[in-house]
């Protein structure tokens, strides 16, 4: 798996549950896409209880990142190309 440390991320939530992350994305961001566990965002395979919500806000992608000892973080990363890819998948009815 790619290392999340390579991304220039901002932590939106820390030590959250998967449910809290899903609810936060649905209530705080104008767009979102639901993906299945294992779906690759940037170079990271997402971990979580399906459906996993990923937020889109302009060029920002907001997604959950889970580590065994630290729970789930909600990360916000600016990347126009990845945001466009996710929007295209959403439009295609993924």
């Amino acid at each position: 798996m790619g290392c999340v440390e390579a991304l220039n991320y901002e932590i939106v939530l820390r030590d959250a549950s998967f449910k809290e992350c899903r609810e936060y994305i649905k209530s705080h961001f104008p767009e979102s896409i639901d993906v299945e566990p294992g779906f690759k965002i940037f170079d990271v395979h997402t971990i979580g209880v399906p459906p996993i919500s990923v937020g889109l806000d302009g060029d920002f992608v907001i997604f959950p990142y889970t580590k065994p000892c630290h729970g789930t973080f909600l990360l916000r990363v600016e990347d126009a190309q990845e945001a466009a890819r996710l929007r295209a998948l959403k439009k295609a009815g993924r």
Partner: peptide, 15 residues
């Protein structure tokens, strides 16, 4: 033993 573990279990069940 924590929420992260549940997330990993759901992930394994899905993939």
């Amino acid at each position: 033993h924590n929420d992260a573990g549940v997330s990993y279990a759901a992930t394994m069940a899905a993939i």
